[in-house]
């Protein structure tokens, strides 16, 4: 079976955008709930609570162009419905559907209909109403739709090259998003240095765990005590947790090798080389290395290298130089 580069690109972005929508929903949802646990809420505290969300993705300049204050309503609106924010949930779903529409013939009816349903839902008044009255339910719907799409993919999509691009997109985006979720913790300032390792600190780390659906799994492995280095180890280096960065990068590496047809430990293009190399480094890393480098610095470096893989993957398979129409016309007219 052949796969058009444009189609590979669409499949890849389709899953990236769905995964992104899901993670933004997770992030906003957890922060809304976290807000309930905080005391003494004045405007400054609220801003300090929300700002990290937009700062961790580097979206703060755009945000302040569109809103005056980083309060609950503005930030959640920015991340959920604002169409000027290309990573808002609405924008992600619109883009995912555009991509799905271009490759309708390559995905199952079930997947297409679910994306289409989600698209019409989030644009409807009902969605806005639910969001205003019961945000928890609203964000759960977004998450569930994404999970449903993964399940539908699992059980209805042929395991051909197109599938590999769907999966590559999913795990790549998830690695990026888990990174952002952990890094948010770095941006959240504690009220004072006395609070490090204290109740609020633990609460925030628990929120991070919950936003990755890792709350139960963490306790299962590490017991009741929520320790920052344990959470970091779990979300970055866990071998088995399907949202950890290591897990995602290992899946990504496997997908890239499946696409290029090489064995583990080998590569045939730069994407495969970078992915394999990063994976091996993570395999031989421990949480001590992370804290030696500094959590934030470590995550940033990791993020940059993940983006490098994305760029090389695009170069290798999805990119064809834009046709210089004038030149092409001239050449073909000869």
């Amino acid at each position: 079976m052949i796969l058009l580069s444009r189609v590979a690109d669409c499949l890849y972005w389709l899953s990236r955008y769905i995964e992104r929508a899901e993670n933004v929903a997770r992030m906003v949802d957890v922060n809304l709930q976290l807000l309930l646990d905080l005391e003494r809420l004045d405007d400054n505290r609220i801003t300090a609570h929300w700002e990290p969300l937009i700062r961790s993705t580097g979206d703060d300049p755009l945000f302040y162009k569109l809103y005056r204050q980083a309060d609950s309503e503005n930030v959640t609106d920015f991340l959920t419905f604002n169409t000027e924010n290309p990573s808002s949930i609405l924008s992600c779903i619109v883009t995912a559907r555009e991509n799905a529409r271009m490759v309708r013939d390559k995905i199952s009816t079930e997947i297409w209909e679910e994306i289409n349903r989600l698209y019409h839902y989030i644009r409807s008044q009902n969605a806005k109403k639910l969001w205003a009255s019961d945000p928890y339910d609203f964000y759960r719907e977004i998450k569930q739709s994404s999970l449903l799409l993964q399940g539908l993919g699992d059980s209805t999509v042929v395991r051909d090259e197109g599938w590999e691009f769907l999966q590559a997109g999913r795990y790549l985006e998830r690695a990026i998003q888990t990174n952002i979720l952990v890094d948010i913790k770095y941006h959240i300032l504690l009220p004072s240095s006395r609070d490090v390792g204290g109740a609020i600190d633990a609460l925030q780390w628990m929120a991070v765990l919950r936003s990755c659906s890792g709350f139960e799994a963490y306790h299962h492995i590490y017991g009741a005590d929520v320790q920052p280095w344990n959470v970091a180890e779990f979300l970055i280096l866990s071998e088995n947790f399907p949202r950890s960065i290591l897990f995602c990068l290992r899946s990504l590496d496997a997908r890239i090798r499946a696409i290029s047809g090489v064995r583990e430990g080998h590569f045939s293009n730069r994407a495969g080389k970078l992915a394999g190399r990063l994976l091996y480094e993570l395999n031989y890393s421990s949480v001590e290395d992370i804290f030696e480098t500094g959590l934030h610095e470590y995550l940033q470096e990791l993020q940059l290298r993940t983006h490098d893989i994305a760029r090389e993957l695009y170069e290798a398979y999805m990119f064809f130089p834009v046709v210089d129409l004038a030149r092409e016309i001239e050449e073909q007219a000869l």
């Binding site: 052949i2 058009l4 013939d105 046709v323």
Partner: peptide, 30 residues
């Protein structure tokens, strides 16, 4: 899309194609 899917063939746009030696080619991942 509907027809292409049912026939099991590709849907291509102009930008997916190029001409070399007066032959038409699709740009694929391979």
């Amino acid at each position: 899309c509907f027809l292409a899917q049912q026939m099991g063939i590709e849907v291509v746009e102009g930008r997916d194609l190029c001409i070399r030696d007066r032959k038409v080619f699709m740009k694929t991942t391979q």
